[in-house]
Nucleic acid binder design. Structure first.
Lengths: 199, 199
DNA sequence: CGTACACTTGAGTAGGATCAATTGAAGTGG
DNA sequence: CCACTTCAATTGATCCTACTCAAGTGTACG
């Protein structure tokens, strides 16, 4: 979809669907950085710095609202409220990256998996991202590349969550059965209820 | 220094010194998120969202420029250029987090260590952060908590880098002997030269 | 001189990686 | 309708990276 190093990228707002940002190393190792849901911005780095250092892909059909990157300066000049909201959204994304970093750096495999699934589920609670509202349209390869684990070990870890009746893997996607138990297992407390600006 | 959940936090600009942002889990596991050097912002999340979800600590004496968080709205209204620069800095910090996430998720221990040290060294190249300009004032415990490794394994990994004559650990800090070799070892290419606004 | 902190090293273990198959569902083309 | 391919999920076996436990060294400081 959108690839790293793209100079002519625009700024987008996600209106519908699910996608993700990722980075690749030259030898093919992939790390998924975060997931993109309605309300998120895509391409802010590219708009500000002229080049995106990550790539973006869709997991389900996405509806985006396009914004010309050249207009960003104009927006900052004429619509300070919107400019503030953009910074707010960027800052919240950084907050999510922080938690993600804690997860990959310090949580065990099963904690990581539980955290990731609970987190996406919580974020997707109010918006529909997949074909059914209960299902998250991701493959185990995506989970592996998000958690920094191998595909095989990710599979075995997800099986453990399934055996505990916390999730079910069905129709090429993940259904959450018990989000509270997932959060507890991940030792994760909040998804703080913040007033979110609509851009 | 500044702790998580702080509501009355201000926004700061680092003028001098070295610090870091980190998160703790309830059982004490610590993950260092990134390092703060001159030109970086501290507390943007707190200013925008009312609460910081991470803590901050100094590694060397730091000189900060304080900014009242209540004035942020005013700044966005009256100084769109500065508002733009703040977003730029926030976005660059996110970019650094992205690379960090790739590192922890997909690089091996020695690659991670090489990347981290090369990265901090490269960022600190133009500004003095420790007592001598060559030395990075961090302990191996900090490195461990940044890389998501145990202290013991971090020590053994750093020894390997020292045996290869890439670094020297001296006077409770790290000196870089061959940054190019570190970058090559980490399979890390760029620290792109971006025009950086001064805030 | 005793304590504290950072760094170091060795031994044994475990969590996760790699390798190698297998299953099953969903196309696709004849 | 049936071979053929492809992709995702699954499982077992083996290996190795990184963890834990347990000391020990060196230096700074009161």
């Amino acid at each position: 979809m959108l690839v790293e190093g793209n100079h002519s990228a625009h700024l987008y707002t996600v209106l519908f669907g699910l996608g993700f940002r990722y980075k690749l190393m030259v030898d093919g190792r992939r790390q998924i950085l975060n997931y993109l849901l309605p309300g998120d911005l895509i391409g802010l780095q590219g708009s500000l710095m002229g080049e995106m250092q990550h790539s973006v892909e869709a997991l389900s059909p996405m509806l985006l609202c396009v914004f010309e990157r050249e207009q960003l300066h104009t927006l900052y000049r004429n619509h300070p409220g919107l400019a503030y909201d953009i910074t707010w959204i960027a800052s919240r994304e950084e907050q999510m990256l922080d938690e993600n970093l804690l997860s990959i750096g310090r949580r065990t495999a099963i904690e990581r998996a539980a955290y990731l699934i609970a987190f996406i589920r919580a974020r997707a609670a109010k918006v529909q991202v997949g074909r059914s509202s209960a299902q998250l349209p991701i493959t185990q390869q995506h989970v592996a590349d998000t958690l920094g684990l191998s595909l095989v070990h990710t599979n075995k870890t997800l099986r453990k969550l399934a055996e505990k009746k916390l999730i079910v893997w069905r129709d090429g996607g993940c259904e959450v059965l018990d989000i509270d138990a997932l959060m507890k297992l991940a030792r994760w407390e909040r998804l703080q209820e913040t007033l979110r600006p609509l851009v």
